[in-house]
């Protein structure tokens, strides 16, 4: 097979646990597995492409590949959000079961193919935290009038509780939280949030991350480049990515508790939403999803496939697993 030398644009820096390190791991592993025949070089965000521009760049063939999450493309291809993380969505085993065996992958491939992209799931994150708050939030009704930095489907759902979602420039987030322009924000998960230093200002960290249980990361590749690979090379990439999903889940589950302990030592209070609050949020999320389903046929199709699978799976989950 002819040697492959690709450039891969990342959407998170290599220094960030999981978000970046999983991409870096892909670079290392593919070189080893292929005996050096495939080189996929990791480029930091902005080094070649600004993070939110990688979809177009891969689609146009300006870079060969990008390490990202389908959740970034809600503004371009709303349906792809179904393949990143769903509010009140599944844990990793259920999500993978649907994706690999429940019809998810076929829809996923079909959607990306429209844009000249071949994508392979290539990482998975543990559940996220549901936000950092400066003041204790007693119930979701307390959120009314709060200014939060929040993103995506979750932001839309919180809007129904009177939350004002803020965009804010990256360097402004820290001073804005410090001075009270915003009352809180959502980022990722304990191990990553620890590095970002939000604990320096906000002392209440809420769980569970109802808006994002498990999150898929994917390797987007320019379809023309992918088609040029030999079957062996394609299998090598798919295998390494499959292994990256396994690695992401295992690592993600393992690194949270040490991080949580460190956060608690730094004076952070860990809080949990009550069941009642979660129910209210769930209702809001269902409304948001219904709006998305009505607005976009691809979203509707992908979500229908997932919902159908979930309904059947519930029976198995109920009898198969200990409570």
């Amino acid at each position: 097979d002819s040697k492959v030398k690709w450039k891969m644009a990342a959407t998170f820096p290599s220094s960030l646990p999981q978000l970046g390190t999983l991409g870096k791991r892909l670079e290392d592993q593919i070189a080893k597995v292929s005996g050096g025949n495939i080189e996929i070089r990791f480029y930091e965000p902005n080094a070649l492409v600004p993070p939110l521009e990688v979809f177009d760049a891969v689609s146009m063939g300006a870079v060969d590949a990008a390490f990202s999450t389908p959740g970034f493309w809600g503004g371009k291809v709303p349906a792809l959000q179904v393949f990143a993380a769903l509010p009140f969505g599944p844990a990793a085993p259920e999500y993978m079961a649907w994706f690999y065996f429940g019809g998810g992958k076929e829809i996923f491939d079909e959607i990306y193919a429209k844009y000249g992209i071949k994508s392979v799931m290539c990482g998975m994150l543990a559940p996220e935290g549901s936000g950092w708050f400066k003041k204790e939030v007693l119930s979701v009704d307390d959120l009314n009038g709060m200014k939060l930095r929040f993103f995506g489907l979750g932001a839309k759902a919180l809007g129904k509780f009177g939350v004002s979602a803020q965009l804010l420039a990256a360097p402004d987030v820290y001073p804005a939280l410090d001075r009270g322009v915003i009352d809180g924000l959502e980022f990722v998960q304990p191990a990553i949030d620890l590095k970002m230093g939000f604990w320096q200002i906000a002392k209440y960290y809420y769980f569970p991350g109802w808006h994002q249980q498990s999150t898929f990361f994917d390797l987007m590749m320019n379809k023309a480049q992918w088609d040029k690979l030999s079957p062996t090379q394609q299998a090598q990439i798919e295998s390494v990515c499959g292994d990256n999903v396994r690695y992401g889940i295992a690592e993600g589950e393992a690194i949270q508790l040490p991080a949580l302990k460190e956060l608690q030592e730094k004076g952070v209070t860990i809080k949990k939403w009550s069941d009642e609050d979660l129910k209210k949020l769930h209702v809001a999320v269902d409304e948001v999803i219904a709006e998305q389903v009505a607005a976009d046929p691809d979203f509707a199709r992908a979500y229908a496939s997932f919902s159908a699978f979930r309904k059947d799976y519930a029976t198995w989950k109920d009898i198969g697993y200990l409570k």
Partner: peptide, 15 residues
């Protein structure tokens, strides 16, 4: 043209 074909919106959905 790509953006037009997708009728691209804000990635934050609320934008």
């Amino acid at each position: 043209a790509h953006s037009f074909r997708l009728d691209e919106g804000s990635p934050s959905l609320t934008g």
